[in-house]
Simulated scan of single mutants.
Amino acid sequence: MRVVFITGGNKGLGYEAAKQLVTKGYKVYIGSRDLVRGKETAQTIGAYAIQVDVTDEISVQKAADRLNQIEGKVDILINNAGISGGFNPPRDITVETMTAVYNTNVFGIVRMMRHFIPLLEQSAQPVVVNVSSGLGSFDMVTNPETMESKVNSLAYCSSKSAVNMLTLQYAKGLPHIQINSADPGATNTDLVGDASNNAKPASEGIIPIIRLATIDANGPTGTFENQHGTMSW
């Protein structure tokens, strides 16, 4: 049985992904900052919960240590935890806002990779999915025909561009691990809220996440995909 760990797994996209992976026969651990809420959520879908705050190095290390004790490996890591930081125009952005967004969306992935790579390397086929966004695609945000071009969010958009570059660099440096970015699109979650009139259910947003999480050994690495297939960077 393949073991999955999902950050931010107690709600939104993380919850929907966890629920679907459980139904597919995977052993799923959801990472949650609030362990009580995490356990309550996990029990409803047949998953397990581990406390983790991706902005806290010690918390991430403890989560990795706990999984090492229980499973001795992680087959699939889904870096899903993220915040928007608000959709403020660039003139209103502060260093504090940028720091908060990057601390979760970007540095959170670095912390997770730092402590989970040893667990992934115990898997016969390790996989990492970084949940990104079309708002981090230079091509999409400069194409006037896309919804992404209408959104001006300096902190969030730039953080997701950084996530995509993390994906590429990790994939290049760790060729024995399949590492890809997934764009769920605008979904009805706490992260998006009313920011988009075209938001779809989270159950649709997880399509590329699930597809990339369940690839076989011949699957891709270093790619950026949405529900329709490969995306431009």
Rank of each mutant, 00 (worst) to 15 (best):
R2D: 15
V4G: 07
N10E: 01
G12I: 04
L13P: 06
Y15H: 10
E16L: 06
K19H: 06
V22F: 11
G25A: 01
G25Y: 01
G31N: 05
G31Q: 09
S32P: 11
D34K: 03
R37S: 06
A42P: 14
T44N: 02
T44Y: 00
A47P: 04
Y48E: 13
A49P: 01
T55H: 04
T55K: 04
I58R: 06
I58E: 11
S59C: 02
Q61E: 12
Q61F: 08
Q61T: 05
K62V: 06
A64K: 07
R66I: 06
N68T: 04
Q69N: 10
V74K: 14
L77A: 14
N79Y: 03
I83K: 13
S84G: 11
G86N: 10
G86F: 08
F87R: 09
N88V: 12
P89S: 15
P89Y: 12
P90W: 05
T94N: 10
T94V: 06
T97A: 05
A100T: 02
T104S: 06
N105F: 01
N105W: 00
V106P: 02
M112Q: 09
R114A: 10
R114K: 15
F116Y: 02
I117M: 10
P118C: 11
E121M: 14
E121P: 13
A124F: 09
Q125N: 15
V128R: 14
V129D: 06
V131W: 11
S132Y: 07
S132W: 03
S137M: 05
V141A: 10
N143W: 07
M147G: 07
E148C: 05
S149M: 02
K150G: 09
K172L: 09
L174W: 12
Q178M: 13
Q178D: 10
Q178C: 13
I179E: 11
N180D: 07
N180W: 03
S181L: 00
A182P: 03
P184V: 00
P184G: 03
A186P: 08
A186K: 03
N188A: 03
D190H: 07
P201W: 04
A202K: 03
G205Y: 07
I206E: 10
I206M: 08
P208C: 10
T214G: 08
T214F: 05
T214M: 03
I215D: 07
T223D: 11
F224K: 11
T230E: 14
T230F: 14
T230L: 15
T230G: 09
M231Q: 14
S232K: 15
S232P: 13
S232D: 15
W233L: 13
W233Y: 14
